[in-house]
């Protein structure tokens, strides 16, 4: 399906490769780093425990093993049992202390991870939909509010708070290299903090089963320098660029006269539905269909004409367009940077 190109984001000074990093063991910020530290500590503890206990069973078996075929008489070993009482008692004590140590380290790490808050964070609202992510940068002034989808931009090194919600079922926001996950629950909103220290692209994916296309509900977080971030945000605030060429005007007309307007917004036109992702700056995104396809003309065409082939069961209906209409539409959409 996909052979896609790696698209360097030269403007951001970032080499972006998709999908971005997505491993718990490749942290890119303080939250994921703290958790990775905890992982290794507990890992080594349980590794040692496992080796000791397995060796214990093997030794126990080896020292008393007998290959006799018939069942031997029942035995007692009272002296051995007395020694064993001490051994078992010690083992239980060590177990309790070890578990306590794990508890303490968990608490400390948890506080560190939750404690990375700030009075002046970048605030982002993420609303889960079947099967895409609505991303809003709220502002008291409506015309300063950025609405986009699936691709989240954050400035490097700054605290970010995500306010979660869901428009339908339970989803879960999870970018393994950045932080643990937070469920998006309808009827609840929670504050979820993150911070990314290294510029780059980080992959995330829905981690709570949410229906037919749960497997294709990805997102990416693009961490860029402060100036690049501001630039991006300013660009996103602008309404869609008015088409000037014949083909792009035709493309916009195709958009406005077909089913697209039932679900998608392009600010600057009359299309204002919020059922589907906001397409005002679709041209600026690296991937489409929630990190499923690269944002190339071919993939975009395939997606528009038959989304059900790529994400069967998703909410977008097929759009059998005439080839030149389709071509114009795609050209238009690609200008919406």
């Amino acid at each position: 399906m996909i052979g896609f190109s790696r698209v360097p984001l030269l403007a951001a000074g970032v080499f972006a490769s998709y999908p971005g990093d997505h491993s718990i063991l490749h942290p890119a910020g303080p939250q994921a780093s703290n958790i990775e530290w905890l992982y290794w500590v507990i890992f080594w503890i349980v590794f040692v425990v496992y080796v000791v206990v397995v060796l214990g069973f093997m030794r126990a078996g080896a020292r008393t093993y007998t290959s006799a075929d018939e069942m031997l008489p029942i035995m007692k070993d009272e002296a051995g049992d007395r020694r064993a009482s001490w051994a078992v008692g010690s083992a239980i004590t060590i177990t309790v202390l070890t578990l306590f140590a794990v508890l303490v380290m968990s608490e400390i790490t948890g506080k560190k991870v939750e404690g990375e808050t700030s009075k002046n964070p970048v605030t982002i609202q993420v609303i889960g939909h079947q099967w895409w992510w609505e991303v809003i940068y709220p502002d008291p002034q409506a015309d300063q509010t950025v609405t986009t989808a699936n691709e989240i931009h954050v400035p490097v090194g700054k605290r970010v708070v995500i306010l979660t919600n869901s428009a339908d079922v339970i989803h879960s926001f999870w970018a393994p290299s950045i932080n643990g996950k937070r469920d998006l629950l309808p009827g609840y909103s929670s504050a979820f903090w993150l911070q990314i220290d290294q510029p780059g692209v980080y992959h995330g994916q829905c981690a709570e089963f949410c229906g037919l296309q749960h497997a294709h509900m990805g997102f990416s977080i693009v961490a860029e320098r402060e100036d690049a971030f501001s630039q991006w945000k300013a660009q996103q605030l602008k309404p869609a660029q008015d088409p000037t060429e014949l083909v792009t005007v035709h493309g916009r007309d195709v958009f406005l006269s077909h089913a697209c307007v039932m679900c998608h917004t392009i600010r600057g036109t009359d299309a204002g539905s919020r059922l589907g992702p906001d397409l005002t700056h679709i041209g600026s995104r690296q991937m489409i269909a929630a990190e499923t396809l690269p944002n190339t003309p071919g993939a975009l065409a395939g997606w528009i004409v038959d989304p059900q082939r790529i994400k069967p069961g998703n909410r977008m209906s097929p759009n059998p367009l005439q080839p030149d209409d389709l071509q114009a539409l795609i050209t238009y959409l690609q200008t919406l940077k």
């Binding site: 703290n34 958790i35 992982y39 968990s106 991870v113 879960s172």
Partner: peptide
């Protein structure tokens, strides 16, 4: 049982839950 100890730890669970 030992991977359960990892899951019992909340911050670690935040990462590995539902995976």
């Amino acid at each position: 049982g030992l991977s359960g100890v990892m899951l019992a730890s909340v911050p670690l669970d935040w990462q590995v839950h539902d995976t």
